[in-house]
């Protein structure tokens, strides 16, 4: 288990390899479909938000206000990342993002951007909303809540020992690509070849 804390340096990122388990402590910003499209189309980050050396978390948490009026995250697992594939590479490049947390993996554009600019894709366990919400110590702020609605807003979260696995590293490797190829080859042994 490798301990990471934000902000993360490029050197640290480049020391990580596919298959490494990490525990992340520090600040993560949630961002999913609406934010990625918005940034891709040239939208500006709200004042106070910087992704430099930072981590984006593909997540639409369940957040409620407790009795004292403070935000409380009650469920916070990752959402499917491939939907951000058209946009992610550009956001990594333009904003100096060092880590992207999500689930299901991403495609070749993100893989290339990770290699080129020094970033990793961190796979959290999809559906594990409670275990991951327990890692959220505090909601520091929320941005674009009105504009995009709660799941799509940018939530600035303080996390402690958030567990994830490196599945795309900064050296051009992707576990997703490797498992896909191996499973496709395994499947070909179970079905008779197609006659053409």
């Amino acid at each position: 288990m490798t301990l990471l804390s934000t902000p993360i340096t490029e050197e640290t990122i480049r020391s990580l390899r596919v298959g490494d388990e990490v525990a992340l402590t520090g600040i993560v910003f949630t961002g999913r479909d609406a934010i990625h499209k918005y940034l891709h189309e040239g939208g500006a980050l709200p004042p106070g938000v910087s992704l430099k050396g930072g981590v984006i978390y593909h997540c639409g948490p369940v957040v409620i206000k407790d009795a004292s009026g403070a935000w409380k995250v009650v469920a916070a697992g990752p959402t499917t990342s491939t939907r951000e594939e058209p946009y992610q590479w550009q956001i990594i490049r333009d904003h100096g993002v060092r880590g992207v947390i999500g689930k299901g993996g991403m495609g070749p554009k993100t893989q290339q951007a990770c290699k080129e600019y020094g970033c990793v894709y961190l796979h959290a366990v999809g559906g594990a909303a409670q275990v991951l919400a327990e890692c959220v110590q505090k909601v520091r702020d929320v941005y674009f809540l009105e504009k995009f609605g709660s799941p799509e807003a940018i939530w600035e979260l303080e996390v402690v020992k958030f567990p994830a696995v490196v599945t795309i590293d900064a050296h051009g490797r992707s576990l997703h690509e490797e498992v896909f190829k191996a499973s496709a080859s395994a499947l070909s042994r179970h079905v008779q070849p197609v006659a053409h």
Binding site: G60, P61, A75, G77, T79, G127, A128, Q130, E134
Partner: peptide, 21 residues
């Protein structure tokens, strides 16, 4: 293992197993 812990935690806290309900 994380999935198993999550199942137990969600039940005990009476909160969504997954945030995507």
């Amino acid at each position: 293992n994380i999935i198993e812990r999550n199942i137990e935690l969600a039940k005990r806290k009476s909160q969504p197993i997954c945030q995507d309900t």
